[in-house]
Write a protein that binds this DNA or RNA. Structure first.
Lengths: 360, 360
DNA sequence: TTGAAAGCGCTAACAG
DNA sequence: CTGTTAGCGCTTTCAA
């Protein structure tokens, strides 16, 4: 029943650049329901004619009931469904320019860090009658800009977890209403986390355990959060007389773990703070492979409490940022439930097994 | 500098149902670039007038260069950029009905199982000059249908990881070109995995280790894959004289782990096969909490080799489905690089620490 | 309550 | 090479 097939070249073809949907799909304006094939899609004109009313009446009956008699409404609806009418949303949106859709562009949809953002934004958008579409900028500023550009006419606003530089973002914010996740850039509204306080919590925790040599594993230079964490960490380490070394930058992925771990082991640090959990878990894997005990020989701290942080080995001490709440608030700002402003959310430390006293 | 703020009610408001973007955002047709505020967006008519050419010439200069003199093209482009012209994609797409966007609807964007699908689809789409937008159906058939309905005019086709029933899906496939991930439903094209063979590999593996009592932890009843796995597992267990018990159905989430683990422990099984890795990892966590040793007292097998399967504790034995390849192929089908058909991909077993000989 | 007609912004014949 | 003129499908004044 299931016959494994050969697989056609799996590499993305860069050859032609642009393809068209094949002939069998060339069904714009076509009636897919079979029948005598090749008919054009049914429009509101067809419905109106068939129902014996004006198009304006048909339009009202379908999308503005109450401004038309009950009898007419019923009749038009009956005809519409009999004909299999579906409104063309493109045409529908053209006059008003509004689609009730929101665009959410993140640097990496597959980074569990953004899960809360996706969920929160979607929930709140649904509650406000909006639909959310996601796009992935793959950590590339140009792709982020391209997505905003391509989607701009199709959505009423954007939630961005931005990678572009300040100027680029300000430009994007001209195109459409924009709110920012994890980036402060007045006057564009946004939600950020209290990095200063979470860094303080980390340093306090490590100092309490007896550490005095800490390394920070840097994230992408395009990350605003990375800059904030570095600065805050440096300040609080200074307060406690803790030596802070900076390593990296590293890509914020599992795959960077080995390089980051090796760099940390080459130095004097007894504890490392990673830009994010992905990097931290990658470090953990490398340390296990090299037979380095955690937290005995090295304590490890993450940055965003992602899926996996609680069940990796050992479970990761990290910062639990309320990303879902951030997602909800961002959509609230976009839809006007909350004044578009600069919101800072508190993010608590979650101590787990990856941190402990240094073995002397 | 960072002032933690109070947080406004975080619950989604169900009250009004529909909000409008606030007045400050009511910028359709507005020029965001400041200036004397309240101007309408610049259209191609403005560009044409300012450049002293016909709109058709302006249009050609901008989107069909080569059918216009170099001098004119340059001039029009200069004027367009000076005026800050941006094409209205809605209007642009209306005549042709084509947007070069593809919709990808999955039951749960935050399930790592779909990561490969997202990545593969996006890569191949980009190579073919398409943009992918994602939507989340939250495992709900109605929401899946609603998304297809809302997006249908905005995309040229859909990749669906479907939850709706056969009839519903056939109906969706009428609306727009559709290809299916992990679901066989002729004549709608799709890519599935060879469940029969992967189930055989699982049973062979467990039999080789000495197991003769196996439990299957079921997934959602709406999942086609669940049905296939159950049937295949039953067949291969039969061949080897292994007793197979079915438990569930369970939601395919970490959170269902405890219930599933407890159910398994209540029976005679020495090995459990979970619908997916999320469920399997949840089971692992519960077993650890209850002090049950894995694989000594119970072997655990997952289903899709998600992010986390390799670093949970113990690492999970599972099936490594080539989801990224599936994503690429699905987009190829949609864009016509590959004939729209039924493709079945081979999915190998990855044996890790969660399976071993039963302790007698 | 309903109808006629004017756009929304852009592209694509069809002439010139 | 460029201008004129119809639409694409729908909503929405403005009258009746």
């Amino acid at each position: 029943m299931c016959v494994p097939l050969l697989v056609l070249d799996p590499e993305p073809s860069m050859a032609t650049g642009c393809h068209e949907l094949p002939a069998c799909w060339q069904t714009r304006g076509m009636d897919h329901s079979g029948g005598d094939g090749g008919r054009r899609a049914v429009t509101i004109y067809d419905v109106a004619r068939e129902a014996g009313v004006a198009t304006s009446t048909a339009s009202r009956a379908l999308s503005n009931p109450g401004r038309v008699s009950e009898r007419t409404r019923r009749h038009v609806e009956e005809v519409a469904s009999r004909l299999g009418y579906r409104a063309n949303r493109l045409a529908q949106a053209l006059p008003s320019g509004r689609t009730r859709m929101l665009g959410l562009v993140v640097p990496d949809v597959t980074n569990p860090h953004v899960f809360g953002l996706l969920r929160g934004a979607e929930a709140q958008a649904a509650a406000a009658g909006y639909t959310v579409v996601f796009a992935d900028s793959e950590e590339r500023p140009e792709l982020e800009a391209a997505h905003v550009e391509r989607l701009s006419s199709f959505v009423d606003g954007f939630v961005l977890s931005p990678r572009g530089d300040d100027a680029a973002l300000r430009a994007l914010a001209q195109v459409r209403p924009v709110v920012l996740f994890n980036r402060s850039l007045a006057p564009v509204p946004g939600v950020t986390f209290d990095f200063d306080d979470s860094s303080r919590q980390i340093v306090d925790h490590l100092v309490a355990l007896g550490h005095s040599q800490v390394a920070y594993l840097r994230g992408p230079v395009t990350s605003w959060a990375d800059g904030r964490r570095r600065a805050a960490l440096a300040r609080h380490c200074g307060v406690h007389g803790v030596t802070l070394t900076e390593l990296g930058p590293f890509a914020p992925t599992l795959g960077s773990g080995p390089a980051a771990a090796d760099a940390a082991l080459a130095g004097p640090a007894t504890a490392v703070v990673a830009f994010n959990d992905l990097l931290a878990i990658g470090v953990l894997q490398r340390l296990e492979a090299r037979g380095v005990s955690v937290p005995g020989e090295l304590s490890v701290v993450g940055g965003d409490d992602i899926f996996g942080a609680s069940f990796c080995h050992p479970p990761l001490t990290t910062i639990a940022a309320p990303t879902e709440q951030a997602g909800r608030l961002l959509v609230d700002m976009l839809t006007g439930r909350v004044p578009g402003d600069e919101l800072v959310l508190h993010a608590p430390l979650v101590a787990r097994g990856s941190t402990g006293p240094p073995r002397v």
